[in-house]
Amino acid sequence: MTVQDYIELVNEAYKERGGIAGQREPLKTTSAKRIRKRMVEDLLAGAVLPPVVIGKVVDDLASLDTAGALMTAISDEDKGKLSIIDGMQRTTALLEAFAESEQVIKHRLLRVEFWIAEETESLIYRMLVLNTGQVPWNLSRQLQVVYAPLVAEMKEKITFDRVLEIQGSNPERRTKAGQYRPDDLAELFIAFGLRKTDVDTKETLADEFSRLDMAEALSSHLYREFFYPTVQMMVDLDGAISRLDDQLIQPNGDDETDGKKLVGRNVFDSKPARIGFVVAVAIAVMGRIGMEKDKDQHAMEQRIKAIEDGLTQLTDKLGRMDAEGMNDFLRLGVLQQQLYGTKRSAVGRYERAFFENAFKILIEESFDIPTLETCWRG
Rank of each mutant, 00 (worst) to 15 (best):
V151G: 04
R303I: 07
K56G: 04
L212M: 10
R195A: 08
N131W: 12
L372E: 06
G80D: 11
L262D: 05
R265V: 07
L164Y: 04
E25L: 05
M321T: 14
I85W: 01
R274G: 10
R265W: 11
E8M: 03
A273P: 08
I158E: 00
S63H: 14
W115Y: 00
G68Y: 07
L70K: 13
D296V: 08
S101I: 11
F359E: 08
P51H: 01
D236G: 01
E8F: 08
D258N: 06
M88L: 04
M286H: 05
A273I: 05
P370E: 05
K271P: 10
G133P: 14
E365C: 06
Q338W: 02
I249E: 14
E216N: 11
D255A: 10
P229R: 02
G310L: 05
R352Q: 03
G264N: 09
E102R: 04
A13G: 06
G259Q: 07
E118R: 15
V281G: 01
D5W: 04
L150N: 00
R303E: 02
L27V: 11
R38Q: 15
V129T: 07
A206R: 15
K271R: 12
H107L: 09
R141Q: 11
D309E: 10
D65E: 14
A73G: 05
A32P: 07
K260E: 11
F277E: 05
A240M: 12
L110Y: 08
D322S: 12
S345A: 08
R34K: 12
R274K: 07
D309T: 13
H221W: 08
Y340T: 11
R344K: 12
T197Y: 02
G325N: 13
E365I: 07
V281H: 01
E25V: 03
Y350C: 00
F189H: 04
E208L: 14
D183S: 03
F189R: 02
V10N: 06
P26S: 13
L222Y: 01
L110A: 11
Q338F: 04
D184G: 06
E216K: 07
I369R: 06
P51D: 04
R38H: 15
G378H: 12
G19K: 10
P229K: 00
L372N: 07
P182C: 04
D236Y: 01
F329G: 08
E121A: 09
A186L: 03
A97T: 15
P251F: 08
E365H: 10
L164W: 01
G287Q: 02
P149F: 01
E12L: 14
S101N: 14
I124N: 03
E308C: 08
G178T: 04
T374A: 15
V10S: 08
F209N: 14
L64Y: 15
D236L: 02
M1P: 00
A217Q: 09
